[in-house]
C-alpha cells in the first residue's frame, strides 16, 4: 500500500483540509459529550471515527449537520465556517450523511427517497411544479436520472417502487447511502454504515465506500464499530473516548495506541 499520508497535529492547519474541526465542545446537562475535539479531514481521503458507545461520535456528526449547536469550537468546510448556517443549508454546501438508526421517509418509495436526496441540487418551486413548466420538467427528468443511476449502482433497482417502510435494515442502509449520494456531496458522513450487515456484506460495503471515494471524488468520514472494516479502508483514524480525542493517526498507529486499547478493553470489561 502506498499510504503516503502523514497526519501532523491538527494545529498545523493543513491547507488541503476539506473539513476542519477545532475545539468542538458539546455538553448535555452534566454530560460532556464532546470535549475540545480537533481534527482535519483531507480532501479525497477516508477518515474513520472510532470510540466506544457514548464516546460522542454521533454527536459530532450532528454538529456537522447543524442538528446540534456546540457550546464551543468551530467547524469549517472547504475553509468556510458552517456553525452559523441552519441545517438545511448544509447539504447545498456538499455535505451528505446517513444516520445510525435510519432516518428514511417510510411512506415514500425507495426511488422517491433517493430523489429527495437531490433536493439541494434542484430549484423548481410551487409555481413551476404546479404548471409543469418545461425547465421544471427537465429538472425532474434529471432528478430521476440521478436516482436511477444510484439505485442501479447500489443494487436497489428492483425495489424502486417499493415503500421504504418494512424493508430489511441492511437494505434501508443502502437506500440511505443512495439518498446521501444523490445530493452529489463532496463530504459524506456515514454513521455506522455496516450496522446489521453480515461478514460478506461488510466486505462489499468496504469496496463500495472505496469506490465512492475514488470514482465519485467523495471524501468520507465514517463512524464504525467493525474494527477490521475501519482499519482496512481508512486513510486516517480519529479515536474518541468520553468525548475526548485520545488518538489520531494511521490505522496502524491508532491500533497500537495504549489509550485506544485501554478504552476498548475497558468497555469490554464493563
Amino acid at each position: 500500500m502506498s499510504e503516503t499520508y502523514s497526519f501532523p497535529p491538527a494545529a498545523a492547519g493543513a491547507v488541503d483540509a476539506l473539513l476542519s474541526v477545532r475545539g468542538l465542545t458539546v455538553r448535555f446537562g452534566g454530560i460532556v459529550a464532546l470535549d475540545a475535539v480537533s481534527f482535519d479531514v483531507k480532501q479525497g481521503t477516508i477518515a474513520g471515527l472510532i470510540g466506544p458507545n457514548g464516546a460522542g461520535k454521533t454527536t459530532l456528526f450532528n454538529c456537522l449537520s447543524r442538528l446540534y449547536t456546540p457550546n464551543a469550537g468551530t467547524i469549517a468546510f472547504a475553509g468556510r465556517p458552517i456553525l452559523r448556517l441552519p441545517p438545511h443549508r448544509i447539504a447545498p454546501l456538499g455535505i451528505g450523511r446517513t444516520f445510525q438508526n435510519l432516518a428514511l421517509f417510510p411512506r415514500m418509495t425507495v426511488q422517491q427517497n433517493v430523489m429527495v436526496g437531490a433536493h439541494s441540487l434542484t430549484r423548481s418551486d410551487y409555481v413551476s411544479n404546479a404548471l409543469r413548466l418545461p425547465w421544471a420538467r427537465r429538472e425532474e427528468a434529471r432528478t430521476l436520472e440521478i436516482a436511477e443511476e444510484l439505485l442501479e449502482y447500489l443494487g436497489l433497482t428492483a425495489l424502486r417502487h417499493v415503500p421504504a417502510e418494512g424493508l430489511p435494515f441492511g437494505t434501508l442502509k443502502r437506500v440511505e447511502l443512495a439518498r446521501a449520494l444523490a445530493g452529489r456531496p463532496r463530504l459524506l458522513l456515514l454513521d455506522e454504515p455496516a450496522g446489521g450487515l453480515n461478514h460478506e456484506e461488510v466486505d462489499e460495503l468496504g469496496e463500495t465506500v472505496r469506490a465512492i471515494r475514488d470514482q465519485r471524488n467523495v471524501t468520507v468520514l465514517l463512524v464504525e464499530h467493525h474494527m477490521n472494516f475501519v482499519m482496512n479502508i481508512s486513510n486516517q483514524v480519529v479515536a474518541l473516548d468520553f468525548g475526548r480525542k485520545i488518538a489520531e493517526g494511521t490505522p496502524a498507529e491508532v491500533q497500537a495506541n495504549p489509550e485506544v486499547i485501554r478504552a476498548y478493553l475497558g468497555t469490554d470489561a464493563a
Partner: peptide, 26 residues
C-alpha cells in the same frame, strides 16, 4: 402536478421525517 414534483416530495419528506428532510436541504 405540484404533489408529484420536487415540492410535493419535500412536503411528504417533512411529514415523514422532518430532520432527515432538513439534512437533505429541505
Amino acid at each position: 402536478n405540484l404533489l408529484r414534483g420536487r415540492v410535493g416530495r419535500a412536503m411528504v419528506a417533512i411529514r415523514d421525517h422532518h430532520i432527515a428532510a432538513e439534512t437533505m436541504g429541505v
